[in-house]
């Protein structure tokens, strides 16, 4: 066990896999000499050389597309997109290239690549830098998506993504990169894609989230636990595609209440999929409508405006209270 920040855990996962498997390469803007603008890949080029940690031209589409080709040939590329706000230039390459080769070749070819995208807000970077783009990439088949929110999960999920035989998008929690430090078991153990974590067991309501928001949800749950009947179960989804339907369903069937929290816009956000799925499987167990706490359907924040744009603790608490006090 080692104390690590989220950033250090991501770097440790990449170093571990690069040492274990010579087919793993990293490519992206500023990932080599500079070690990435967040320093996630710090020291890796020195250790593994410029042919395995490759500084590319400023071209997200080109980075994603060349990684597709590398993966078709048998490498396991990790493509870094500098900010998730820049990822959409690669959208077609990811959603109609990387994710379609296996299907369109009848299973003859696969694209075992990872796309790392520093995501989410709270850094006052505006929509150019801070995005929560998961819904776009969940749609249409072929992409796996993981969202770590702790150093251990960052380590274990990135390992899983690198080892996965299909394209996997890792949405990394920028606001937690350096602020969150924790014990990491860095012995090469991956976390299964599609497995949620119950971060706080409870009996009265299920609060579901992923990414940095999990910490706000947990804090609210702890605060509200002082009130009788407010024993809230907090689940960190960790994987969005596929998501852990069994864990969610079992939890809601027990608690009878669900609130979903994410910082992507509300309309057609991932919460809509979660709400629809849960009502299909646990309709008879529900004591109240499923609540959603999300960002408004707006460009992400503005200078100094993230605190009004992102769901905050007050909004999360209000949604939980509405669910608990709901009366048919």
């Amino acid at each position: 066990m080692t104390q690590m920040t989220v950033l250090e855990a991501l770097g440790a996962a990449m170093a571990h896999e690069m040492a274990r498997d010579s087919d793993v390469v990293i490519l992206g803007e500023d990932v080599g000499t500079a070690g990435g603008i967040f320093r996630t890949t710090q020291g890796l080029q020195q250790r593994f050389g410029p042919d395995r940690v490759i500084d590319t031209p400023l071209d997200e589409k080109g980075i994603a597309a060349h990684a597709v080709g590398m993966a078709l040939y048998g490498l396991r590329p990790i493509a870094e997109i500098q900010f998730s706000g820049f990822i959409h230039d690669a959208f077609e390459q990811l959603m109609f290239g990387a994710t379609k080769y296996r299907w369109m070749t009848g299973g003859q070819y696969s694209v075992p690549m990872v796309i790392r995208a520093p995501s989410f807000g709270g850094i006052n970077g505006g929509f150019w830098h801070s995005q929560s783009p998961e819904a776009y990439y969940c749609h249409g088949g072929g992409m796996k998506i993981v969202v770590p929110s702790t150093p251990q999960d960052a380590y274990g999920l990135l390992l899983a993504a690198i080892r996965d035989p299909d394209p996997t998008l890792v949405l990394e929690p920028v606001p937690l990169y350096r602020t969150l430090r924790g014990e990491v078991n860095d012995d090469g153990e991956a976390i299964g894609i599609g497995e949620a974590a119950i971060v706080r067991p409870g009996n009265d309501l299920t609060a579901l989230s992923y990414g940095p928001m999990c910490h706000d949800v947990l804090a609210v749950a702890e605060q509200m636990a002082e009130n009788p009947g407010y024993d809230i179960e907090v689940i960190d989804l960790r994987s969005l595609m596929p998501f852990d339907v069994d864990a969610i369903t079992a939890s809601v069937q027990r608690t009878g209440r669900l609130v979903v929290v994410h910082e992507a816009p509300l309309s057609l956000g991932f919460g809509a999929e979660l709400a629809a799925t849960v009502q299909e499987r646990a309709f008879g167990y529900l004591h109240c409508p499923i609540g959603r706490v999300a960002a408004p359907d707006l460009p992400y924040g503005f200078s100094g405006g993230d605190e009004y744009y992102r769901p905050n603790k007050a909004r999360i608490a209000a949604a939980i209270r509405r669910a608990m006090e709901f009366d048919f």
């Binding site: 087919d23 390469v25 042919d51 395995r52 080109g62 597309a65 060349h66 990684a67 597709v68 080709g69 590398m70 993966a71 078709l72 040939y73 048998g74 490498l75 077609e92 390459q93 109609f96 290239g97 379609k100 369109m104 070749t105 003859q108 070819y109």
Partner: peptide, 30 residues
């Protein structure tokens, strides 16, 4: 057909050019 080392295209015209170049780059790296 993979058995013939022939890869079918993405139908979006030209979108697959870097796939070919990336594969060639990978062969060189290996």
């Amino acid at each position: 057909d993979r058995a013939l080392n022939i890869i079918p295209c993405m139908t979006q015209v030209g979108a697959y050019l870097p796939h070919a170049a990336g594969a060639a780059w990978a062969a060189k790296l290996k």
